[in-house]
């Protein structure tokens, strides 16, 4: 009995059901590092730590959020095959007139990008709240005079004409042609100014002038000629944010543009609940405080992609490795800060679901929700035991999911769902 209890303790998380629910008050993390002064605070877009005025925009429903998340996932998967296919996917999915006028790019949906940071732009500095996204590259913000149109945002819309450090990039500049590899679009020209266009998987888009400007991450971290998109025509599911901070691997991403200062190293902690805070830290201070850091190499399958690809080798649930043939994982895995769920090949997901349900067999299942098919009703429980889920990556790296990294609460504790799903196609 002692052995069984020890095993149970070792392979399960014990969680207070009430802790799964979002709080209405913000509790900042006590582990925010600010180790070297190059850290930004990360908060959940819809949580109490966010300064965004949510009344300004229509908050999407849970079902809409998951639909957008799936669109983003599908778009990443089509993009992965080839840029041409990504374009075809967009044309197939889109019905809007605007989408036919803007070339496709390799971004993703934005309604599901939930984590935001605040940076400074221009001289004098204006504060802008941006979604941070490791799944795309170009940083952009809405700009006056919003020649097309701008959606409502919480911060004042950036006006380059009031900044002494803003410069347009000309069409003849080699910088303009970098847009082909970043957003993947052929830039266009307007009165000799380079024009970028990015269209995302859910038909959200930003179109505007490609410029350079002073970017202030922290008081000590200022970048004079940061290349970004000054959006004149922006529509979509961006919430009340001012735009996007691109952290992909392309030349135009923040990571590459600040490589001389930070050496292409950054880290983040996403807040475990929507009522707490995390951090986004740049430079060599990242992760060094911990002796428990485990590194896995980038996947060679993604060497020509701006996505961060890893090699997933196996999955364990409650201490038992799932019987999944290695070939199932041969299509690779991307780590993305902007997708909510984890999407697995169908065989892998079915094995995970079966093992998880078996480990949770003493709990009452709840109604399925959207693409989430494994939900529980914890209404009559104070505490629950969740089987630990471990992903094994190349290099002997076993990563155990946190207790807050397993479930999504849909409406209340009566519908708490496993936050994993299966791809539609084994080849996705």
């Amino acid at each position: 009995r002692e052995t069984i209890e020890k095993n149970l303790l070792h392979h399960t998380h014990t969680v207070q059901v009430s802790s799964l629910l979002p709080s209405t008050t913000c509790t900042p993390s006590t582990k925010d590092p600010h180790r070297n002064g190059s850290s930004l605070k990360v908060v959940h877009k819809h949580g109490p730590c966010s300064q965004l005025n949510q009344d300004k925009t229509k908050t999407p429903t849970d079902a809409e959020i998951l639909e957008q998340d799936q669109l983003r996932a599908e778009f990443i998967q089509y993009s992965r095959r080839s840029k041409r296919l990504g374009g075809e996917f967009l044309r197939r999915k889109s019905g809007s007139k605007a989408s036919t006028n803007i070339p496709a790019n390799l971004g993703g949906s934005f309604g599901t990008n939930n984590y935001i940071v605040t940076v400074g732009l221009g001289t004098p500095k204006r504060s802008l709240t941006l979604v941070f996204d490791t799944g795309s590259d170009l940083t952009w913000t809405q700009c006056q005079p919003c020649a097309g149109s701008c959606y409502d945002q919480n911060d004042a819309i950036f006006d380059p004409s009031y900044s002494s450090t803003y410069t347009n990039i000309t069409c003849s500049s080699p910088l303009c042609s970098q847009l082909i590899s970043g957003p993947g679009n052929q830039p266009t020209c307007s009165s000799s100014t380079c024009v970028y266009g990015v269209l995302y998987g859910d038909n959200s888009f930003s179109l505007g002038f490609f410029g350079k400007e002073k970017l202030t991450l922290t008081a000590k971290d200022v970048f004079k000629d940061f290349l970004f998109g000054c959006g004149q025509y922006n529509k979509g599911l961006f919430g009340a944010t001012a735009g996007l901070l691109g952290l992909g691997r392309d030349k135009l991403s923040l990571v590459e543009q600040t490589a001389n200062r930070y050496g292409r190293i950054f880290s983040y902690c996403l807040p475990p609940t929507s009522s707490s805070t995390g951090h986004l830290t740049f430079g060599k201070g990242s992760g060094k405080a911990s002796n428990t850091i485990k590194f896995t190499p980038f996947s060679k399958s993604y060497s020509k992609s701006s996505f961060y690809g890893l090699d997933l080798l196996g999955i364990s649930v409650a201490g038992d490795k799932l019987a999944i043939p290695p070939s199932v994982f041969s299509t690779g895995l991307i780590i993305d800060s902007g997708t909510i769920l984890t999407y697995l090949p169908p065989t892998a997901y079915n094995a995970l679901r079966t093992a998880f349900r078996q480990a949770m067999k003493n709990y009452t299942m709840g109604e399925a929700f959207s693409i989430l098919d494994t939900c529980y009703d914890f209404s009559n429980r104070n505490t629950i035991s969740i089987p630990k889920i471990v992903f094994s990556f190349r290099g002997g790296v076993d990563v155990e999911m946190d207790k807050f990294g397993v479930f999504l609460v849909v409406r209340s504790v009566s519908q708490v769902c496993l936050a994993f799903t299966g791809n539609k196609n084994a080849n996705d």
Partner: peptide, 30 residues
Amino acid sequence: TAIFGNTQQRGLEVVYDVGGSRIGFVPGGC
């Protein structure tokens, strides 16, 4: 292509060493 989403990244410190072509995880690092 599988995708490792942001729900599963909660509570993990994720370290991107792009120059070193590797990603690090610190379980419980947040």
